[in-house]
Design a protein around this nucleic acid. Structure first.
Length: 661
RNA sequence: GCCGGUGUAGCUCAGGGGUAGAGCGGUUGUUUUGUAAACAACUGGUCGGGGGUUCGAAUCCCUCCACCGGCUCCA
């Protein structure tokens, strides 16, 4: 009889198993359904293959696709299957890395003879993957010495590079691929496919099957644009057809919300090709949304003690020499205009140097600090041709930009109140699920001393922690002049967007030699805080449009009320109602009865107007309206005109959407 | 900037060496409508730009541009 070992299950209970026992044995001992669903096992906190032998006394937890770990294992294994399929179809392919990502995975390849994947290849690859799944190939783990690994992958240059880099002490992605360096781990599926991989993997390809290859794209090896560009295939993988279908449905939902599509359908903005890429024009309705956003923002900034400034769009290059932009940011700037006097003039990519000049326009006293200067500053950035994207990435944009100059002592408190201000403002626009990101010093392209950076980063971090929100580190993501906190918001369908940025800057005041006279009569260097709460108005509008799927809350809706008369003989009353709404500050208009009512209702509904009023004979007699609120299938009849107006005015003030029952 | 894809009417799309199409939209007329599409007529295009092959190019080839999906970058 074999000796027994004990394993501790997640609920604390202890199970005795015959030794040796694998992860699969553990799962089987609990139940046959679990054994079937098991994909991997966590042994003493370490995610491992099911085939792994379990040591006596281990704490174990069986991993199925219902956990995020399980899905990740499943996706990673599917990536291997894809790599095998590709090497079957294109013998001689070099494969690079194939990690999991949100909802799926990708794998980077270099095809022989510089061949390229096309979209139609995806179906071929999927079919080959299905064949591999049917073959029920086991994933067999084997650990090799470094030199054995180098030999095994001698014809796979990317794998060789990974093995070399992990044995040289690399971390991160490479370790995930290969292990710790002295020993490398591999997974073999069949005689002709073995991959370098740390694992773990599902026991067999038969555990997989609910996947779809989404798209093919170029991707630089190691994300470095100076290195070879590989062919990347993105896929998604799930544990059931249902889950896969749901995911595909969510993608369709995101497509339906695409602000570029809604922007055209709702007649909000466009990108005339006559203007060039990334340059938008706002149509009257988009202009209304923007104006309401800006007006509200202005009002809040006045209340928060900001002063409003205005600065020009172009300047002599000297300014950006002083600020360091020409040294650090020239790639992002439009090329200069050379004028007759031999001066180079630039479109401004940022507003900060101008605000500093305002600060410097006369001597400042500590009594004036903190000085908060706000501007809707329109800036131009020469974005690379491949990156412009709707309103979220443009070449001309307006920032709700402000620069706060304060003393070192004031800095912390200013940041704390600023963060509260931001979050409160964003909540008024209907976003309420946030986390913070701290971006630190960018290696190799930063100005300032180590000590200054350290102080700036520590201050920002402590302020961010004090806010009590989740904090994520974005190492090396800061601007060249200082670190930043950015507020990330999750939208209605769970995507995250970078919203506000708050940057700390010890550099610019120094470069411009900005000073104030402190209480001790000494010239003292102020601290500068850069901040944009919307980020850019364009991007923020895009996010709102997608968040609300175009159905903006009443206060932001470009048209709030449409008044439709049942027939032309009540058009006068419809106008009267619209005028009364407008007198109460609502955006309302009467639509003439040129078409049947149903057609006009449909038109207004498609425009996502919050309130459609229908008026007819009863209403003319009683001074009432029929109210059809957006989202409701159940119109109200005979509502007193004044009651309706009061209700919508209140709703608008509260920044709410129509209440539907 | 790089890789892949796509450019036909305002929008969505069909056509694929031999007279440029549909639906929606727009305009006009008729219709007077109680909650998501009345009827009719009309209107609409250098088939992204340029070059080439050809008797003939929207269609085949080259090139540029724009857009879409990624990479790098980023508000």
């Amino acid at each position: 009889m074999s000796p027994l070992i004990d394993v501790v299950l997640p609920d604390g209970s202890v199970k005795a198993l015959e030794s040796p026992a694998s992860g699969l044995d553990v799962a089987s001992s609990i139940g046959s359904r679990l054994a079937k669903a098991a994909l991997a096992i966590i042994v003493n906190g370490e995610l491992s293959d099911l085939s792994r032998e379990i040591p006596d006394g281990a704490h174990v937890s069986v991993v199925t696709a219902s956990s995020s770990e399980g899905l990740e294992v499943l996706r990673h294994s599917t990536a291997h299957v894809m790599a095998q399929a590709v090497t079957r179809l294109w013998p001689g392919t070099h494969f690079a890395i194939g990690p999991t990502i949100d909802n799926g995975f990708y794998y980077d390849f270099e095809l022989p003879n510089d061949a390229r994947f096309t979209e139609s290849d995806l179906e071929k690859i999927e079919n080959e993957m299905r064949a591999i799944v049917r073959e029920d190939q086991p994933f067999v783990r084997r650990e090799l010495l470094r030199d054995e690994g180098l030999e095994l992958f001698a014809d796979q240059p990317f794998k060789v590079e990974i093995i070399r880099s992990v044995s040289a002490g690399a971390t991160g992605e490479d370790v995930r691929e290969a292990g710790d360096g002295t020993v490398v781990s591999t997974y073999r599926n069949s005689d002709n496919f073995v991959d370098l991989c740390r694992g773990p993997h599902v026991p067999s390809t038969a555990k997989l099957g609910f996947f779809k290859l989404m798209r093919v794209a170029g991707a630089y090896w190691r994300g470095d644009e100076k290195r070879p560009q590989l062919q990347r295939i993105y896929g998604t993988a799930w544990d059931s057809k249902d889950a896969l279908d749901q995911h595909l449905f969510r993608l369709e939902e995101a497509e339906r919300r695409d602000h570029r599509l809604l922007g055209r359908e709702l007649d909000l903005f466009s990108f005339p090709s006559e203007l060039g890429p990334g340059l938008a024009v706002f149509h009257p309705k988009g202009g209304t949304i923007r104006r309401v956003m800006e007006e509200y923002s202005r009002q809040r900034h006045v209340e928060a003690g900001y002063e409003f400034v205005y600065t020009p769009h172009i300047t002599k290059g000297d300014l950006f020499e002083t600020s360091g932009h020409l040294q650090w940011f020239a790639d992002g700037m439009y090329p200069p205009m050379e004028l007759d006097d031999g001066q180079n003039y630039y479109l401004k990519p940022m507003n900060c140097p101008f605000h500093l000049l305002i600060f410097k326009s006369r001597q400042r006293s500590y009594r004036e600090l903190p000085l908060r200067m706000f501007e809707f500053g329109t800036v131009y950035r020469y974005e690379k041709s491949g990156v412009v994207h709707g309103l979220t990435r443009v070449r001309g944009m307006t920032q709700d930009d402000a620069h706060i100059l304060c003393t070192r002592e004031q800095m912390r408190e200013e940041l704390v109140s600023l963060l509260n201000f931001v979050l409160d403002l964003l909540r008024e626009f209907g976003l309420n699920d946030f986390y913070l990101e701290l971006s630190t010093r960018p290696e190799g392209k930063a100005v300032g001393s180590d000590q200054e950076w350290q102080e700036a980063e520590e201050t920002l971090e402590s302020v961010a922690r004090a806010a009590g929100l989740e904090l994520v580190l974005d190492a090396g993501g800061g601007a060249f002049y200082g670190p930043k906190i950015s507020v990330q918001a999750r939208d209605a369908i769970g995507r995250t967007h970078q919203m506000s940025t708050i940057q700390l800057d010890f550099q610019l005041p120094q470069r411009f030699d900005a000073t104030y006279i402190a209480a001790d009569s000494l010239r003292t260097r102020p601290i500068m805080i850069h901040r944009a709460l919307f980020g850019s108005i364009e991007r923020f509008m895009a996010i709102l449009i997608e968040h609300y799927a175009g159905a903006l809350p009443t206060w932001l809706a470009p048209e709030q009320v449409h008044v439709l008369s049942v027939s032309g003989i009540y058009d006068d009353y419809a106008h009267e109602v619209a005028l009364a709404c407008r007198a109460a500050g609502l955006r309302a208009q009467a639509e003439p009865a040129t078409e049947p009512l149903g057609a006009r209702i449909r038109r207004s509904k498609m425009e996502k107007v919050p309130y459609i009023l229908v008026v007819g004979e009863d209403d003319v007699r009683n001074g009432t309206v029929g109210v059809n609120a957006r989202g409701s299938n159940d119109p109200e009849r005979g509502v007193a005109m004044k009651d309706f107006i009061d209700r919508v005015a209140a709703e608008s003030l509260a920044h709410a959407s129509p209440e539907v029952g």
